[in-house]
Amino acid sequence: MDVVPFAMGATARSWDEQHLDLQAAAGQIADAPTGGFTAGVSGAAARFASAWQRHATELGDTAEARADGLRTSAADYVRTDQAVASDNRFLLDAVLREAR
């Protein structure tokens, strides 16, 4: 059995997990409390948090794009690879489905 498409599916799910983790990180940065700073610094702290929320979100989006791209590549791979026996297609379909 060709293991490559299964590895691609599993890796795609890992990219999905990275996407979710970075979503969480972006939220954490956005929620970082700026109230402890002096008035002279709190604005800079808020601007920094806002900018980095975007950076983390974009990085997470990149991870999600890698996951989707891998799934597409894996599907293409399977279509052209006769080594994937029909009785393994069911398993493979499950792996290539986006879990979350």
Partner: peptide, 8 residues
């Protein structure tokens, strides 16, 4: 958050 980014 930096730990999350490092994981990636």
């Amino acid at each position: 958050a930096s730990a999350q980014v490092d994981d990636l």
